[in-house]
């Protein structure tokens, strides 16, 4: 699924990385616990979270994730956006809650979640 499709499905704003919206993602992970995210390695992944601090972006960076979606209308800080820009990570923000956002992506085909 392209990041641009995620943006459309979640009716999300693009906060940085607009030039990378045509990148493909193959899996997704939804969590507010970064250590749980770090236990889960997939290529070309997107992270959905309601947690807002710079370690969210660091975690995505360490995992080689290509996109972070902030749910529940959460907005990252300017510093977080700067770190994401340096790392080439797309940041999206949606009003949808975690459950709905994850479910929407899953039923639309982003369901390669098997180990």
């Amino acid at each position: 699924m392209k990041i641009s499709t995620i943006k459309e499905l979640l009716d999300a704003d693009v906060l940085c990385g607009v030039e990378s919206l045509e990148k493909e993602v193959h899996s997704a992970c939804g969590s507010d616990m970064m250590s749980d995210v770090l236990a889960y390695v997939k290529d070309q992944a997107v992270l959905l979270t309601g947690l807002v601090n710079s370690q969210v972006i660091r975690t995505a960076e360490m995992m080689d994730m290509v996109c972070v979606v902030f749910v529940r209308s959460k907005r990252p800080t300017l510093e977080m956006i700067e770190i994401a820009e340096e790392s080439g990570i797309v940041i999206l923000a949606t009003k949808k809650r975690m459950y709905e956002a994850c479910g929407t992506l899953f039923v639309n085909g982003l369901n390669n979640t098997k180990d």
Binding site: D32, M33, M34, S35, D36, L38, A39, T49, L51, N53, Q55, V56, T59
Partner: peptide, 17 residues
């Protein structure tokens, strides 16, 4: 610490993994 997204008890196991 948990409210910051860590302290799930996965740190050392992840390092070993």
């Amino acid at each position: 610490v948990r409210s910051l997204g860590f302290g799930a008890g996965m740190g050392l196991p992840n390092m070993k993994r």
